Amino acid sequence: MAMREFFTAMWRTILLRGLASLAFGILAFVYPGVTLAVVVTLFGIYALVDGLLGLWGVFRGKDQGTSVTSLLTAIVGIVAGLVCLLAPGFATTYVVLLIGFWNIAAGLLQLIGALVMWKDIEQPGLLALAGLAGAALGLLIVFYPATAAISIIWVIAGTAVLVGLVLLAFGWKLRSAAQGLMKARGV
């Protein structure tokens, strides 16, 4: 029951992460002609914000038990964001692979988290779907880097919008579950 309470308490964090992903995706669609350096910076900001929000969620729920996969997902996002922001030359050279590996790691960790907590949370399929989408994008990028470099903005934008919408839907489901717990407890 502790995990269920943890995730229902985290609906705001998940909604914020969904909004950040959605905003990143929309910006990438609106400005497709941006240079790779700007994409690296935008991705760095997005990954850092996503990782920091995830880390905030882990520490906020530490008394109720936190998931190792949630912590690792947050750390992966923070590291990817910092590499893009602090070493943009390096990141620009390797942005395709960096984004691919980040998506694989974050997606797999979300999927593992959904599977581990399948019985403890409502609608774990939404979290698993977000993880699968991210990991699938990462695999495509890593195995087809030349093609990915040409269409990277559109692919990233589309996936960010999809993941953002899924996280928003999942956040709203958690919000409903949190409200149900509060009513059951008479709060």
Results as ranks from 00 to 15, higher is better:
A20C: 13
I78W: 05
A177S: 06
L111T: 15
A37H: 13
M1I: 13
L139G: 14
L97G: 14
F101D: 06
L140G: 12
L162H: 08
G186V: 00
G54W: 03
A149D: 11
L48G: 06
L108N: 09
I121W: 01
G25A: 08
A28Y: 02
I112D: 03
P32G: 03
Q123T: 06
L168V: 12
V116G: 01
L162W: 11
S151C: 08
I78T: 09
A20M: 11
L165G: 02
L111C: 09
L140Q: 10
W172Y: 14
G57H: 02
L168C: 12
L86S: 08
L126D: 02
A177I: 01
A160F: 06
K119D: 15
A169T: 01
D120F: 09
A106I: 14
T41P: 02
T8Q: 11
G44I: 02
V34M: 12
A128R: 00
G100H: 11
E122K: 04
I45C: 00
L181E: 12
P145S: 02
V95I: 15
T41K: 05
I14P: 02
L127F: 05
G131H: 10
F170Q: 00
T92Y: 06
V40P: 00
I150H: 12
L55K: 06
A184D: 14
P124H: 00
E122A: 08
I156Q: 10
F24T: 03
Q110C: 10
L85T: 02
F7E: 04
V163M: 07
V161H: 07
V187T: 13
I78V: 15
Q123D: 09
Y94T: 13
F43A: 06
E5G: 05
I45F: 04
